[in-house]
Write a protein that binds this DNA or RNA. Structure first.
Lengths: 319, 319
DNA sequence: CTGTTAGCGCGTTCAT
DNA sequence: ATGAACGCGCTAACAG
């Protein structure tokens, strides 16, 4: 490995001089142009890369962010990670990954973050509690959560659930919907939205016939669908995946969407557009949300802000 | 932050003694039991965590792996990352992310890896060339690619394409298929499979009516479907997403799957099971593949092995 | 304009 | 059984 020392030795200069040139402080201090060029050339030639360990030992910013997720298989996770990565690259940040597997939150292990001295924490997904965060409380790392939480620890980026529910209620009203059935699971984001839907439907004179709770597995959805006492005008699903599973389950007992029942989703996953029928859903402004999240954690002063974003209603075939 | 020095000062001991105790070499060297306990207690009390920068500066293993991907939005990416992360956690490894956005490979930036001194490289996805890898050739980091490549640089984990194609051909033959049409894009993995399909179909007396090449966007698939000169017994799609888009496009011009044409996918993404019709496809043994990949990079000696895995044919409604 | 020195936190000689 | 001193690669204060 090329080091400043190896360059200095080769050129017969001192290490500190090389350091000054390489860290861009040459001009400022007043190093001879010729010397600057020699150092730069040799650095280039030997493929010099600053040793991050040495830098961070000296207290130089590591420009490293930790990313925690609760569910790697969330269809949105890849997109979020992609966006995060894109911005991180632009700003010369590095992303370190931690997470729990399948929401087994007890398995969350943050040693990776300690190891690499992260300067910011991005939490992807909703959650209820953050026991694990105790380990971090003694440090003051700016953090942001993208999703809902009951235990806010830093900044927060989420969907405006009230606005969203009203958007849907208005849309359904226009379609002369008089009653609905809810399909939600026990996750925090589902429950948060459900509460708002109930409120919004009340205000728009839309009845809720049934409130089905299922874990989201295809079997739970199937049995939920089978046990339906009656068919509402529209079924409100907690997310698009749930919506597709509901439609699939209905299909298996010969109920057609949207002819017999409509189904409304949430998320606008890539798949929703090509499903048969295509899913009517709410499209969150992911890119803007991620951008905002990144800005919040990478800013010098830790923020406690909560930013709410409004999704766009995408009317397709299912509702 | 608690450091060995802070503990030593507090206890009136020397730093090196504290170091010995904390790195578990106390017994070996012969430190007084009482001293050991004192140090351990103080470390516990002050929440001592070894400084990774200092460690790696001293040459201690960083246990850090770099992960590169070409496409964050690949539906398999989350699953792969989840598996990788699960194993990484078990073995106390850290994962650092790099990648290019939407396959714009020129934007690949590996500075993140240099920054954190990675000890292994996992490449997720197929690719044709690795110009960027030049920067790494002077280091000897064990690497593994999960996917196909034309420019192998380390170990390689992939699907056995010949076996796969034969599996499918045999299946189709049993179903009395006499002709097919291919829908593939220009990616390396699609082309690799296509070649094998062509060979396998020839051996099984299955004709290929048309060879449609499209970029995979819904519009390209739609126009590909519209331009079809005739309907084959079964359409072979390069992957499940392509399959769903084909079915969707056929649906829009009133052609039913599988009644009018069958469609065969590849990948077994989560959605395939719930799509209407559910997609008949090949299911790669992802977990085993990831496990093997991890074993290869994390092993002390860099391997150049290529491991081929055989997928399982999952017969569903579409074919 | 350039070199010397100190020190970030740690493990490892070499002393004692 | 314990401590002093060194060096990993780097930057900054101080000295020419």
């Amino acid at each position: 490995m090329a080091t400043q020392k190896s360059i200095a030795d080769k050129l017969g200069l001192s290490i500190s001089l090389v350091s000054r040139v390489l860290s861009g402080k040459a001009k400022e201090i007043g190093v001879a142009q010729e010397t600057i060029q020699k150092v730069l050339d040799e650095a280039q030639r030997t493929n010099y890369t600053p040793n991050s360990a040495a830098l961070s030992l000296r207290g130089v910013k590591t420009q490293t962010l930790g990313v925690i997720t609760y569910d790697f298989e969330d269809p949105y996770f890849g997109i979020i990670l992609g966006e995060l990565h894109k911005i991180a690259k632009q700003r010369k940040f590095t992303l370190i990954l931690a997470g729990s597997y399948h929401r087994e939150e007890d398995t969350l292990d943050l040693s990776a973050f300690a190891k690499h001295n992260i300067e910011g924490l991005i939490i992807v997904g909703s959650d209820r509690n953050k026991d694990w965060y105790e380990k971090f409380t003694h440090k003051s790392i700016p953090s942001v959560q993208i999703g809902f939480t009951t235990e806010k620890i830093g900044a927060n980026i989420c969907i405006d659930e009230t606005l969203s529910a009203n958007l849907v209620a208005k849309y359904l009203q226009k379609q002369k919907t008089t009653n609905t059935t809810l399909f939600f699971n026990h996750s925090l984001s589902h429950e948060t939205f459900k509460k708002e839907y109930i409120e919004a439907f009340k205000q728009h004179d839309i009845a809720i016939l049934e409130d089905v709770i299922c874990d989201g597995s295809i079997n739970s959805v199937k049995s939920g669908v089978k046990r339906l006492k009656s068919l509402p005008d529209v079924i409100i699903a907690g997310d698009d995946i749930m919506a597709t599973k509901i439609i699939r389950s209905l299909h298996e007992i010969n109920i057609k969407v949207p002819e017999d029942v409509k189904v409304f989703g949430f998320d606008n996953i890539a798949h929703s557009r090509n499903f048969i029928p295509s899913i009517t859903t709410l499209n969150p402004p992911i890119k803007e949300m991620i951008q905002a999240a990144f800005d919040l954690v990478s800013s010098p002063k830790a923020s406690q802000e909560t930013l709410r974003f409004t999704p766009e209603l995408i009317s397709r075939e299912s509702a």
